[in-house]
């Protein structure tokens, strides 16, 4: 007994099994259906883009941390998640070097320079997409979305907004994603919803942000007079599902309380609709989430949890 060294630590002495790594692994699993469908719809080049982004994100993180003499934390898989999200937000014709530069930008500039995981002020994958769209617009829009065997001419939102001519796919097509053009991971609403349900079941996310975001877009669409089909079209089109389920729910850049999250989600939905319906840009998800990312510390400052036993009169 006397020679045994007992561990002493502060309570609690038990911890849940969920870790940062297990959460990131769950996000990767949840993105698997959309990733697999991107390869089915767009071919092997999708796989190549995914591989380039994931590998360069991990490599960039490791290199940056080594350079800054910090512990290397690529094992938490957060860089892999960022990489996969960047890839799924690329058009199929994006060149390999665009994928690489976007990944390095997301990890080194947006994530590591601000302090690494937990300290980025906007979603790194989204910031990378904005950076790429602004830097190489020709590689990130228009014909960049069209595979070699394309039968249509543009993304559904571009057609709907009148930016491009062409025939809109059916709502069922939009839901499943077959024959729809867009970023490689955003075309199948069904695959993304499946991933979202998995994340909710695994308690990685709560439904507040996705439902608040999608609900706002749905209500706005009906109010704007788009009708029921028009509303479904808006929900399934473009990056909304990918954004509402996987990007807006990024912990670091969304508020902490359920009420704060609802405000944030409604903000995302309103901005998306305003940009889509009245703006000059056919897709609004990316900018809406980035804007609300920046607003989220402000939301957290004012919307705090209402504590137990808050001053109550004659309870």
């Amino acid at each position: 007994m006397s020679d045994r060294v007992l561990t002493v630590s502060s309570s609690p002495h038990i911890r849940s099994k969920q870790t940062t790594m297990s959460i990131m692994r769950d996000v990767l699993i949840a993105l698997a259906p959309a990733s697999i469908l991107s390869i089915v719809f767009f071919g092997w080049k999708s796989l190549l883009l995914i591989a380039i982004c994931i590998v360069s994100c991990i490599a960039a993180e490791a290199a940056m941390q080594k350079f800054m003499k910090k512990p290397i934390t690529v094992g938490d898989l957060s860089a892999a998640v960022t990489g996969l999200l960047i890839a799924l937000n690329l058009p199929i014709n994006a060149p390999w070097w665009v994928a690489l530069i976007g990944s390095v930008f997301a990890i080194t500039i947006v994530k590591q320079l601000f302090g690494g995981i937990g300290f980025n002020f906007v979603n790194p994958a989204l910031a990378a997409r904005v950076f790429l769209v602004a830097s190489w617009p020709t590689h990130m829009s228009g014909s960049a979305y069209l595979p070699a065997d394309a039968v249509s001419s543009a993304t559904p939102l571009a057609i709907w907004s009148g930016e491009s001519a062409g025939e809109l796919p059916s709502i069922l097509q939009m839901f499943l994603g077959n024959g729809v053009y867009g970023c490689i991971g955003e075309v199948s609403a069904a695959a993304l919803i499946l991933g979202g349900i998995y994340l909710i079941i695994r308690k990685v996310i709560t439904p507040v942000i996705p439902l608040g975001y999608l609900g706002t877009v749905a209500v706005f669409s009906l109010i704007a007079g788009l009708g029921f089909d028009g509303m479904l079209f808006q929900l399934f089109a473009g990056g909304l599902m990918l954004g509402a389920i996987f990007m807006a729910t990024d912990y670091v850049t969304s508020p902490a309380t359920p009420l704060g999250q609802l405000i944030y989600a409604i903000g995302c939905g309103l901005m998306t609709c305003i940009i889509r319906f009245y703006g000059g840009y056919s897709e609004g998800v990316m900018f809406s989430i980035l804007f609300m990312n920046i607003a989220s510390p402000l939301i957290d400052k004012y919307i705090r949890a209402k504590k137990y036993g808050e001053v109550k009169k004659n309870a």
Partner: peptide, 18 residues
Amino acid sequence: SNCIKCAKCVGACPMHLM
């Protein structure tokens, strides 16, 4: 490791603190 601001503690706190 770094706080990832998942806010799970906010949901778990029985005193509804942050």
